[in-house]
Design a binder for these strands. Structure first.
Length: 658
RNA sequence: GCCAGCGUAGCUCAAUUGGCAGAGCAAUCGCCUUGUAAGCGAUAGGUUAGGGGUUCAAGUCCCCUCGCUGGCUCCA
């Protein structure tokens, strides 16, 4: 072989000489099933990509994150093709991969019905069976416009090519920063052109390489994510590297459904959201009330130990306060409409506590000696959430924040943020969350108050404090509120879902608006730095997250009923009541089931209520002054002396054992 | 707020597609006295979310309102 017919490439780290006609797929000896695309010089490419001398080639496996994204994006193409075959008038929006799946948006005269979804899925299966090849073709802007003349949304995307496309949610999958490409779907046997779509790729080699997919649901979505744009019909689907992975994902969804806090909330009799009260306004029942009270009590104790002072503020205020704070300028849509009292005076329910706390700060002159001043309140706020967004306890219209505002000097800010972040994470860990990452939201250059130097300093301080924690730090550029940068703590729950928990937010706006001042050591008047922070975010939401995290099986210290006595027969009830009295004396929440159900039924009931400790007693136990444990996981420990049993339960609660 | 779907007993679901609203669990009352996830029997429970319409006849078809669910936008 002469040098002219050879290519010198690097194959996943190893230099090689290969035939000059080689494509990425040939070079990798890819079967197109397990390896479905390639990284060529770091860029994702089709397996059919023609290599040039000096290229570095790496395989992309179908079961890697990148591989799944390519698979899902390709499945989205098949979806769009199926829709256009069934509904020729459907105009294409965009069809990117998303976490766990993909979607494609369509402009159709009639929204899709569940039956449509079925027939679309069937059509997709046919397309997959045909093994249509994805063929990439570079086109000029003008040619693309001509070819896609009947696709108004695609034409709009062509106009956006480059930076603007990146900014439009999902649109970067269609048009990248470089040249425009169209993918043709070619029938494997007939060679006929079946369909085409504007797309930057890459794709799997043929539709046959889609091992497992399922359409999930339809929904409406605003074109390019803007409320003022027309609504398109979105079809969501999921696709996986094999049938088992799909099955596993569907099982995960089922598990998530079982853990749904709204479902567990009524099964365990914890809370309800009665229609009579209104959307997004929950009542806590006795059992939920216990959990909530214990959560709050522990939080109070920790805040007290960490130098917070406790304040209280009313739920309603005259409009003047929110005029001063600016809320009526920029947050009025999120507030309940005003009540008119006292001859035309407007009163508002508070959507936030900060203005109230500022008034407390401002109630008298403050000295630098008082700083940092940390004001804490379980502050109940009311927000007029749009009807379509209200969701159980996680998105309510009335909720209670574990809210605090810290006033400190600029010099104190770094230390304060450090200890604050440590405090937050420790507390979250105490409640059983283990897996965190941090998100730093920085300035939106279009919308902010304060000077650049303050923003830079504050953002840097936040970043340094975050980095000290040794957790993953994700940037959220432009995500800050206009009044200051923020860090939020994202926690992963037991089945891997992430929830935004705590937020720590610097504020350059309110201290100005309220003209907050303290007297410095040199007698000058200085503006304090203000930090907003909430650890739970909202108690209701945190409650819901814990409920789902534990699937209702709260650790003993939080469980509404910590132990239940189950007699073998009625005659054993008095004995168990004595045991219960001993536990109660130690502060344990214990019940004795004296109903006329059979023992087995009582166990079943306690099990369904997820009570951590079941204490059984019959003649055998009584004769030994013992009880028999049944734990929530079904294991047992029989004939335990009563004193030991009490000690075991007390220890589990005191130590907040999981 | 927008789009779609749904709304039958406290909960989970039936009701021949327009023909007498029913079951299990839970509740109440009895009987049974039992060793690790449902003992037996009886009773009670409903203006089928609310309102209007079509029809001899509406849980079922049509319209309006309310609520919920899934998304979109927004968000603790």
């Amino acid at each position: 072989m002469s040098a002219a017919s050879e290519l010198h490439i690097t194959l996943a780290g190893t230099p090689r000489a290969v035939a000059a006609t080689t494509t990425a797929g040939q070079a990798l000896e890819a079967d197109g099933r397990t390896v479905i695309a390639a990284l060529v010089n770091g860029e994702p490419r089709d397996l059919a990509w023609e290599l040039s001398d000096g290229d570095a080639v790496e395989p992309i496996a179908i079961d890697s994150d990148e591989g799944r994204a390519i698979l899902r994006h390709s499945t989205a193409h098949v979806l769009a093709q199926a829709v256009q075959e069934l509904f020729p008038e459907a105009k294409l929006g965009i069809g990117p991969p998303v976490e766990n799946g993909f979607y494609y948006d369509f402009d159709v005269a009639e929204p899709f019905t569940p039956a449509d979804l079925k027939s679309i899925e069937k059509k997709m299966q046919q397309i997959i069976k045909q093994g249509q090849r994805f063929d990439r073709r570079v086109v000029s802007d003008d040619d693309a416009r001509a070819e896609l003349a009947t696709e108004p949304y695609k034409l709009e995307l062509i106009g956006l090519k480059g930076g603007a496309a990146e900014a439009a949610e999902g649109a970067s999958a269609e048009v990248g920063a470089g040249e425009l490409t169209i993918y043709d779907n070619i029938h494997s046997r007939t060679g006929e052109l079946c369909w085409k779509d504007l797309c930057r790729g890459p794709h799997i080699p043929t539709t046959k390489a889609i091992p497992a997919f399922k359409l999930m649901r339809t929904a409406a979505a605003y074109w390019r994510g803007k409320e003022t744009n027309p609504q398109l019909q979105r079809v969501y689907g999921t696709a996986w590297e094999n049938k088992d992975a799909l099955k596993e994902y569907l099982a995960f969804l089922e598990e998530a459904e079982k853990r749904d806090h709204r479902k567990l909330g009524s099964e365990l009799d914890l809370f309800s959201i009665p229609d009579e009260i209104g959307s997004g306004l929950a009542v806590f029942h006795p059992r939920g009330g216990v959990i909530r009270r214990v959560m709050e009590d522990y939080s109070r104790k920790r805040h007290e130990e960490s130098g917070y002072e406790f304040v209280y503020s009313p739920h309603a205020t005259k409009s003047a306060l929110f005029e001063k704070s600016g809320h009526l300028d920029w947050y009025a849509d999120g507030m309940y409409p005003p009540m008119q009292l006292d001859g035309g005076q407007d009163y508002y329910l508070k959507p936030m506590n900060c203005p109230m706390h500022n008034l407390i700060f401002d109630a008298r002159g403050r000295s630098y000696r008082e700083l940092p001043l940390r004001m804490f309140e379980f502050g109940t706020v009311y927000r007029y959430e749009k009807s379509g967004v209200v969701h159980g306890l996680t998105r309510a219209r009335g909720f209670t924040q574990d809210d605090a505002h810290i006033y400190c000097t600029r010099e104190q800010m770094a230390d304060e943020l450090d200890s604050l972040l440590t405090f937050v994470l420790e507390l979250l860990r105490d409640y059983g969350l283990e897996d965190f990452y941090l998100e730093l939201s920085t300035k939106d250059p279009e919308k902010y108050v304060g000077d650049d130097a303050s923003w830079d300093e504050a953002t840097d301080t936040l970043r340094r404090a975050a980095e000290k924690q040794g957790l993953e730090l994700v940037l959220d550029p432009g995500g800050a509120a206009f009044y200051g940068p923020k860090i939020s703590v994202q926690a992963k729950d037991a089945i891997g879902r992430t929830w935004q928990m705590s937020t720590i937010q610097l504020d350059f706006n309110l201290p100005e608006r309220f003209d907050l001042e303290y007297t410095a050591a040199d007698g000058t008047r200085q503006r304090p730095v203000m930090i907003h922070r909430a650890l739970f975010g909202s108690i209701e939401r945190f409650f819901a997250v814990l409920l789902e995290h534990y699937a209702g099986a709260f650790p003993a210290w939080l469980a509404p009923v910590q132990a239940v006595g189950i007699p073998i027969a009625d005659e054993h009830v008095p004995y168990l009541q004595e045991v219960a009295a001993k536990l109660r004396a130690e502060g344990i929440r214990v019940e004795v089931d004296a109903s006329d159900d059979r023992m087995q039924k009582k166990i079943r009931n306690a099990q369904k209520q997820k009570v951590p400790f079941m204490l059984l007693a019959g003649d055998e136990d009584i004769s030994k002054n013992a009880v028999s444990f049944r734990y929530r996981d079904g294991s047992q420990n029989n004939g335990v002396p009563v004193d030991e049993a009490v000690a075991e339960i007390v220890a589990a609660v005191r130590e907040r054992r999981p």
